[in-house]
Amino acid sequence: MFEARLAQGSIFAKVIEGLRELVTEATWECSGNGITLQAMDSSHVALVSLVLRSDGFETYRCDRNMSLGISLTSMSKVLKMMGKDDTLTIRVNDDSDAIVLSMESQNQEEFAEYELRLMDLDSEHLGIPDTDYSCVVKMPSTKFSRICRDMAILGDSVTICSTKDGVKFGAKGDVGQGSIRLNQSTNVDKEEDAVSIELREAVALTFAVRYLNMFCKAAPLSNQVNLSMSEDTPLMCEFKVGDMGHIRFYLAPKIED
């Protein structure tokens, strides 16, 4: 049997909203350590890797390792029925072909239960090595979302240039061109508003802005986003999920013909 309970069910709903534009179905790997998921988009340009550690759940029980094929589209629809302060329990009974989502209102007066059929999915996994990136930009996730949205107006691609002083996002297309430069924060009251850059080497990489905008669907999970970059290496875009884990998106760069 598998059972995991989250007092703040809305966190799980935000995780699903963060994934479901990039991948519509995925296999969840459940073990005693927690829940992990790795899935690529259909064109093999982007990948998402999710980790939710067991100690981040209010209660967590996983008697044996399980691979659960789940339609994220359907799960998202079910989770929309959850109240914003509801407690969420995810359960898979032994020898069951369904996942049960139970939602309980804070005053314990309302209790809803939905079942979703599990799917048999073929999943391809990539081995992603630990990487020492040349540059890690940390910035407010709302700012990153706004910049990606704005850049998409100008063109299909965004070039991210990072130096020790700042990071510049630039796009050009048929309508014109533009760029936004952020300097490293020197003095901020709140850490979550800061832009900080750890840099070993300056980098300039170009990415399809459409994918960056899909990654930004996970921005409500975290005040800050980390962008880890090295030349000729996929971008890693990370949002923390409270102190229980993270969503990491990987995106292959655009390269010269």
């Binding site: 093999h44 340009v45 990948l47 996994h125 996929p234 760069p253 655009k254």
Partner: peptide
């Protein structure tokens, strides 16, 4: 510019 694929950088496991 052309779009590269993740499989150009990472191997299947």
């Amino acid at each position: 510019m052309i779009q590269s694929a993740l499989t150009d950088y990472y191997t299947k496991r």
